[in-house]
Design a protein around this nucleic acid. Structure first.
Lengths: 192, 192
DNA sequence: TTTTTAGTTGAACAAACGTTCAAGAATGAA
DNA sequence: TTCATTCTTGAACGTTTGTTCAACTAAAAA
């Protein structure tokens, strides 16, 4: 068996995720991670491998813990269009200090994905899940009669995914909430 | 007087801008800059100051050379709504290898602005210019009767700015063009 | 021609970087 | 108790990082 871990491997991964989310990949050093995770360098390498592997693990953990919970709103019972509204309201109502973090996935698409095929692939899978969640939600809206039968749900789902990115980036540059609410109203007005 | 420069200070700044645009701030080292700019370390420091100052100069140069040219489409005579259509078509029709670079301003908003007040302020001014260009264009659309008089052009301008960010981020993750065209059609459909 | 000014060059710097590793410590199995 | 296994620890590694600087070189001014 050998000596057992003295730390919770999920808890420390969650802390690493938080730090990467806040600072990005390049700006986060192993020293920073040691401080935040509360375990020594050796334990990080022994448990998660090198920095790159740890980052990918963090992104995947983010997808499981953060993204999939956000997506659940779209899958919940009740009015699909109301769910989409809630989804965007959640983004807009993120507290200012959290808003500057944006979303680890968007951040990674911008910072790392263009130069790192492994990361790009990891992120692509997650983005596809989000877009599929929008699509399913829109298709259900058609089914329950909230959208007309000739709606191009495929196109609309891409539109909503694009606006999700857009709002998250906008939110990073300390924009006032009224502006973001206005934008959300226009997004929602396209769903008729 | 002293010894004259042996290089064109604007040309080398343009090369630095290209590299920061491609790789981001943190991932670009002084060595990388020496290679790309074709001048020695000392000349870089002597001419532009440290890495941070050079980066801000590069962002400002980008605003002058790239952003303001893109914005000019919105200000050109003729149909304002047609100009907006051209603006978004330019984004969608960016060749794939260039598309992964995205936009230096968006990239900077995501990577650096949240942790660097100086950079954040530089970028904020540029974002405001873009948004104002949209606003002016929309107001002109109202004037010439392409939009009804009760249009909330302020809100719409924020919507268009958000979608610009969204499309640029989407374009970074090697998405197919058909999807982006679909999104642009929906964006344009909100202008009635 | 001499002096002053100012850009060029390459070596050098300390600090920060990601990574490795041998020694120590805690567990279950023999 | 001894052994094998495996996590913990802290020191150490070689690179890469951003930055500085003294020596050199080219032009204009005296």
């Amino acid at each position: 068996m050998g000596r057992p871990y003295e730390f919770d491997r999920e808890e420390t991964l969650s802390k690493a995720m938080d730090l990467f989310w806040e600072k990005g990949y390049k700006a986060t050093s192993i020293d920073d991670l040691v401080d935040r995770m509360g375990i020594k360098r050796g334990s990080i390498y022994n448990t998660y491998g090198d920095k790159h592997s740890l980052f990918i693990a963090a992104v995947e953990y983010y997808a499981e813990e953060v993204t999939s919970k956000t997506i659940k709103v779209l899958e919940s019972p009740g009015s699909p269009l109301e769910n989409i509204k809630l989804f965007f309201e959640t983004i807009v109502n993120t507290p200012p200090n959290r808003k500057t973090r944006g979303c680890l996935i968007s951040n990674t698409v911008v910072e790392l994905a263009p130069h790192d095929e492994k990361v790009a692939e990891t992120v692509r899978i997650i983005l596809e899940k989000i877009q599929t969640a929008f699509l399913n939600c829109l298709n259900r809206a058609v089914e329950v009669g909230e959208l007309s039968k000739d709606t191009d749900t495929q196109a609309l789902s891409h539109f909503l995914a694009t606006n999700t990115h857009g709002l998250i980036v906008t939110g990073k540059s300390a924009v006032n909430n009224k502006q973001m609410k206005d934008v959300v109203n226009i997004i929602l007005s396209t769903l008729n």
